[in-house]
């Protein structure tokens, strides 16, 4: 179990604030969905939270310890990251990609020790990849590749998962599959922060929602508290009907998002 807290995160690039004074907490054992339109600063914020990017100001701490003090290896043992891109440069086997999730545990590719091999097998099994373990990554479909990257992240045995649009470009069935995997990870004691563009999917799976607009966090709270037609109209510029965790989008509002 792990708590992540970010205070006053600002990311500036070329004089423009991509993330503007964002503060948030990710309580241990919860699934948080980060929602916001394109260009809201979600990916920049995620890069700061994973320690891959230094913020212009603000601090991130894990269980009270500043993230900036950790080495790359220490960080990787606590946070598993799924970036938007699912690139695999060389046609390596599925098992090898998943094994790279154990990098911070000192693995040497091609020669896994007992514990590392077990973790890789567990992750392959959890993501229903047993049959594909020896397939080359360049022969996989988009949905299969997304599962491979999920398994790679789970293999790390890190308590916190941060995922940037893990369901993008996936059909509904595969999107459900991925979110079910993330939910199972959280139920088993992990925490997760997931960027989603599918609001219905977020409402269905998340324990709490983080709403982001123009680089700012505009709301953080439970699904029932923060998911309202007014917020959807304000943040995304869409009109919607909301009934508890059920959302029906009806179309664009007459005024654009955030205007």
């Amino acid at each position: 179990m792990i708590d992540l807290e970010a205070i006053g995160i600002t990311v500036e690039q070329d004089g423009k604030a991509l993330v503007d004074n964002a503060s948030l907490t990710l309580p241990a054992g919860s699934l948080t969905a980060l929602l916001g339109p394109n260009g809201a600063g979600k990916t920049s914020l995620l890069q700061v939270l994973t320690g891959l990017r230094h913020p212009s100001s603000g601090t991130v701490s894990l269980d009270g310890q500043p993230l900036s003090r950790l080495t790359a290896i220490e960080r990787a043992r606590k946070i598993a990251y799924l970036p938007q891109t699912r690139a695999v440069v060389w046609p390596v086997k599925v098992r090898e990609v998943v094994a790279l999730g154990r990098f911070a545990h000192g693995i040497v590719t091609g020669r896994l020790s007992g514990e590392d091999a077990l973790a890789v097998d567990r992750a392959l099994n959890a993501c229903d990849l047993d049959a594909l373990a020896n397939r080359s990554c360049d022969s996989l479909s988009g949905g299969e590749l997304a599962r491979v990257h999920c398994a790679r992240a789970f293999a790390a045995d890190a308590p916190l998962l941060i995922a940037d649009e893990p369901t993008s470009a996936l059909d509904p069935r595969h999107a459900f599959d991925i979110m079910t995997l993330v939910q199972a990870f959280v139920r088993a004691g992990g925490s997760a922060l997931v960027v989603l563009h599918d609001i219905a999917l977020a409402a269905r799976y998340a324990d709490q929602l983080l709403w982001m607009q123009h680089g700012r966090i505009v709301s953080q709270g439970s699904v029932t508290d923060t998911l309202t037609p007014a917020r959807l109209a304000d943040v995304f510029g869409v009109s919607a009907q909301v009934d508890g965790r059920k959302v029906t989008l009806q179309g664009a509002t007459e005024l654009g998002a955030g205007s």
Binding site: A72, I73, A76, R77, V88, V89, E96, V97, F103, R152
Partner: peptide
């Protein structure tokens, strides 16, 4: 060598799994 293997996943992912 070991870090080169992780670069197979691209720079961002390699950095996130612990590559300096």
């Amino acid at each position: 060598g070991r870090s080169l293997s992780a670069l197979t996943l691209g720079e961002a992912t390699a950095a996130s799994v612990g590559v300096n």
